[in-house]
Every structure is written in C-alpha cells, then in structure tokens.
Design a protein around this nucleic acid. Sequence first.
DNA 1: ACGCCAGTCAACACCATGTCGAGTGGAATC
DNA 2: GATTCCACTCGACATGGTGTTGACTGGCGT
Lengths: 223, 223
Amino acid sequence: MTPARTPTGTAPTRGRRPGRSTGDDREVAILATAERLLRQRPFGDISIDDLARGAGISRPTFYFYFPSKDAVLLTLLDRVTEEANTAAGDVLVRLAEDPRARWRELIARFHATFGGHRDVVLACAQVRGTNAEVRRLWAEVLERWVRAVEAAIEGERARGAAPDGLPARDLAIALNSMNERVWYATFAGDGPAVAERDVVDVLLDVWLTAIYRTTTPPVSPSA
Amino acid sequence: MTPARTPTGTAPTRGRRPGRSTGDDREVAILATAERLLRQRPFGDISIDDLARGAGISRPTFYFYFPSKDAVLLTLLDRVTEEANTAAGDVLVRLAEDPRARWRELIARFHATFGGHRDVVLACAQVRGTNAEVRRLWAEVLERWVRAVEAAIEGERARGAAPDGLPARDLAIALNSMNERVWYATFAGDGPAVAERDVVDVLLDVWLTAIYRTTTPPVSPSA
DNA sequence: ACGCCAGTCAACACCATGTCGAGTGGAATC
DNA sequence: GATTCCACTCGACATGGTGTTGACTGGCGT
C-alpha cells in the first residue's frame, strides 16, 4: 500500500523527498516544533496541523517534507540513538581495567542521553505499539546493544572474571530490557518507579550481580 | 470532560451502565468478539464498528454497553490480572521452604497466565501509551506485585538467606520491570527476545543472583 | 522571455469516533 | 387489557483528524 519511498538513489533520509534546496529550514522547523510540543503534551495529542502551523506552513505542505507524523518522530529517534551510540563509545572494550566503573559508565551515559531527550524517548515508547516502523528501528538499535553486551559478558567469562551461567545473549537481552523498562517508568513517572537519582546505581547492581554474582568484580585476571 | 460514570451506587463495573437485565449476553458477545479479533489483528486496527458487528449490534448500541473501545480492553485486562493474582496465590509466604523452587513457581505462573492471554496483554501494552486509564490500572497492579516482592526480599534478608544491598523496593521494581519487558518481547516476537521455552529460567536466574548473589539460595536459616 | 521545478496551499474525499433523538417491545402496574 | 415505563436499539448527524489532488508562484538556468 505504501508507495515505494526514496524513488531516486539517495540514502533513506526518512524525512524530505530527495533533491534538497531552499526549504531545508522548514524541515528543521518541523523537527524543532515537534520537540517543543512534545515537551508540552503527548505525541498522540499533537496533530499534523499543529506541527505544520508551528513551522509556519500549511498542513498539505507538511507532507512535502515528511510522509507522516510518525516519520518526524522517527527522525528524532534516529538522532537520539546515534547520540547514545556515540556516548557509549568504546567503554566496553576497556572492561578489564575496572569492570564496575566501566559498566557504571556505560549505564550512566545511556541514562544521561535518554534523560536529555526524555520527551522523544517517551513518545517513541508510546507509538511503538502502533507504528511498525518505530518498532523496527528500535528493535535494530536494541539488537546492536544486546550484541555488544553479549560480547562483553563472554569476554569477562573468558578472562575468568565472570562465572558461566545463562547464555550470554539471553542475559544481555534481559538486562537491556530491564534498563529500558525501568528508565521508561522513571522518566514517565507513572507506576512504580525508581527515583531518578538512584536509577543508575540500581540498574548497575542488578547487572553486576547477574553477570559476576558480586557487586565488586575483579579487576585483573584471576583464573 | 468525561461525565461521572456509574451514576447509581453500584461498584465500578467498568463495562455496562448499572441495572442489568436481558442484554447481558450482548456485553459478553462484545468481549468475546474483542478477544477473537485481537487474535487476528492489533488493537488499533479494530474499530468500534468491528466490535459491534461482531456482537450483532450497531455501532451506537455498542456505546450502551461500553463507553469506548478502550473500556472493553480494560475489562479484559481486569480479568487477566485477577487470574494472575489468583495464580500467584501465596507462593511467596512459603519461600523459606525452597526459595529457588518458590521463586520459579511464581515466575512460571505469571508466565503461564500472561502467555495464555498474550493477545490481551500485548494490546494493553500497546495502548498503555495512549490511554491513561490502562496506564493507571496497570500501575496499580504492578504496585501490588512490587510490594509483595519487596516484602519477600526483606523476609529473606531477615532470615539471613539474602545479603543486604539495594533498597528492597528498588530491587523489586527493577526485577518486575524486567519481567514485563522481557515477556512483552517474547510474546510479541519483535526485537531481541528470549525464546519462550527459556524465558522463565532466564528471568529466574537474574532474580536469584540479584536477590541472593547465587542461583542456589539456602533452604534453612543460616545466620 | 521562457520553461522548469521546488515549494505552497485551498478544497476535497475519507474514515473513525461519539452524540442525539426517535423509536420498539416486554414486563410491571393499574 | 390498557398503560406506563425503561432497557435497549439504531438512523442520521456533527466533529476532527488524515491523506490527496490540482492549481498556483517565484526564482533560476538557458
């Protein structure tokens, strides 16, 4: 049903149809409007007309820049996940130096990134249920992190710092899932939630005990 | 904006306006239709007209029985959470007998209940983003379980089976959150997920290590 | 001086939700 | 056995959001 997007050979920019030109600022105006409105009310309560008017254009013109409301959110999400990936950096490759500190750094950086864009993250969590595209992108992103953590766990087991146990992938999925849900509750503030001040340490504790069976994993090889 | 519901003093039955009579079967027909359709397509793709026609009534008549589409789902959710609470039973009070077995029983029972109604659970997860009522009910239910787990953890610490550590409530929140998200992924099958066959044992492992620092907690008091 | 095309929008078609008001039929009451 | 009442029903309408169409504009290259 959806017409084939990105007709010419440009990268899938998600937003605007290919060949750019003057109206570049309109596109950023829409994105900025979306971020601003998301700070005020939930995504579902924002209409395309709101976004268009906020960017100083009419509703039909909006469709010139984005194929749908969800596409705007998707673009926003892209930015956030990219920022998160950058923030995470190569922390996991230097795990052996000081496992506890490194894991904490990883979790804290994600926390900072998501916390800094909580409105976007929350909105994505909300539409994930209804939008297959968001679901797909998020799944991709998660998969990447799961793989990184899986590899790190296997590394720690190989150097004798962590005991064998669950398949590393399953453990990585469970821990990443926990973080996602706990952050969601903390940022959204609905239902039982960990206080924002404590959330990093709470998550860290569960990660360490699940991976190492202790909250003070060994720094140097021990096996 | 929403008019005060349940005008006369009946319990908040969520569905039908008070004073029941013949049309009782229509109400169950709507609920049955909802469950049937949820097995075929996502909640968002089911219109009120679909529910009405499925139950053999017209759309306006639907509103005689339920104030909205979401209210139908809410009724379905009520049933499931009630079933889950029953299934959980008093497992946690007999923890000391055999902690590992009891915790596993708890997780396995929830798994069975949710798995048996995965369509309803999935639908709820999807509308939680957009419907405050569902969010509230789910928060309530979660809070109840969090409290139960929190108390159990404190009990295990008191009898010397579990070491001190994170505030019991924070730990309970994190673990319950993890379960919710992991089950969601497993049942929905989107994104990285633990195989359904393994999910109970994976979750159990993280619970035990987080609570006891070991997967084989002591049966009798040890302190 | 002209054609092209990125950019723009009024007007329209569509669909789902929710409401209103006019029914209808069976049980209780007179 | 007529009458009233009310649970229950639905046709028709109002509303509000989405997505599309087709015509228009203005700058830029030829």
